[in-house]
Every structure is written in C-alpha cells, then in structure tokens.
C-alpha cells in the first residue's frame, strides 16, 4: 500500500509491459483452445497457453513453479491429452460437432462471470503493487527449503494421492481388458 505513492498508472515498468504482452498471447491461445474446431490443434494451442503461463511465473520471480509448469503441464499433461485424442479416434480435420448446442448460454455465462470478476478484482486491487525487487521469492533453493521444512506432511499426503491415482488408472484400464478377454 505504501508503494502506491511511488507508482503511476500511466508509467508501466518493463516487467509490466512484458507481462502484458505475454498475457495477451496466453489469453489468445486459451481462447483458440476452447473455440477451435480442430481437436488436435486445441491441444497444441494449449501448449502455447501453458508455456505462456510459465513465462508469467518467471516474470513473477517464481522460478521453480515455472519449471515445474513446463515439465508437468507442457511435458506430460498435454502429451496425455494428445494420446487420449488419438485413442478415442478424434477426427484429424475440422469436426463440425466440437461445440454442443448450449454454446450461446455458455458464452453468456462466461462473459457475465468475466465482467463481474474483472470489475471486482480491479476495484479491489486498484492501488496494490507487487514489489518484485530483492531476492527472488520462488527460487529453487527457497522453494525446496520451504517445501521440506514446513510442508512435509501435505507433500507426503500428496504422494499417497498420486499413488492412489496411479492404481486407480491401472484398475480402470485393466478391468476393461479382462472383460474383453471374458467375451
């Protein structure tokens, strides 16, 4: 709050300009992801959106989160989605039935939610600045130290959750194969 006196609305810093440009690219890629009629292109535009978000994390000095984002989202989640598209025999070209019939209602809900939330957020944080100076707050050293010093129990619980998800995915895939063998 005390920073408000030293910052102006009309003099964006270099970090803000970079954040804005990368944000526009990210948002554009996200919009193309949810509107394109070519299913594989949607997954590839999702890579652009998630990579842009990784750059935003870097600009917010959260270095470790950025690399985790690149590794997990761009590296594995999108590959899983592409495999899913292939295994469900998604059409390669344009598919006319990519959007369902409630598209106008969805557009109305999304625009209303965006308008309300943008209004509330801008009104709430109009005079709030992030101080990005000083040591990086999300460097790998800091993140590792915090994670294994204060967040050990949630971390271990999360590993149990990942194990449960792994077992669940195997069970879901395996049951079907047994059924096919039975037939």
């Amino acid at each position: 709050m005390t920073l408000a006196a030293t910052h102006g609305f009309l003099s964006p810093t270099g970090v803000e300009i970079a954040f804005l440009l990368v944000g526009i690219v990210t948002l554009g890629a996200a919009v193309v992801t949810v509107t394109t009629r070519q299913l594989v292109h949607a997954a590839l535009w999702l890579v652009v959106a998630l990579g842009g978000l990784a750059v935003e994390y870097l600009l917010l000095t959260a270095e470790f989160i950025a690399w985790v984002q690149v590794l997990i989202y761009v590296g594995s989640v999108v590959v899983l989605l592409l495999f899913g598209l292939m295994l469900t025999k998604a059409p390669i070209g344009r598919s006319p039935d990519a959007d369902s019939g409630n598209r106008p209602a969805a557009l109305a809900v999304a625009v209303a939610a965006a308008a309300a939330l943008v209004w509330v957020v801008v009104d709430a944080f109009r005079a709030t600045w992030i101080d990005l100076d000083g040591p990086a707050q999300g460097s790998t050293k800091v993140s590792g130290s915090i994670l294994f010093r204060h967040w050990v129990l949630p971390f271990e619980a999360l590993s149990v959750l990942l194990l449960a998800a792994l077992v669940g995915a195997i069970v879901l895939s395996r049951k079907d194969r047994e059924r096919e063998d039975g037939n």
Partner: peptide, 22 residues
Amino acid sequence: MHLAYPAVLAVLLFCTGLYGVL
C-alpha cells in the same frame, strides 16, 4: 508490478476455461 495485471489475466483465463467446459 501492479497486482491487477496477474489478477485480471487469471480471471480472463478462468472464464475462458468456464466457457470451454460449458
């Protein structure tokens, strides 16, 4: 950096995802 930049970007991304889900 102004806090409104990441907050507004997050809002817009969330609403894009909301449109996609619906």
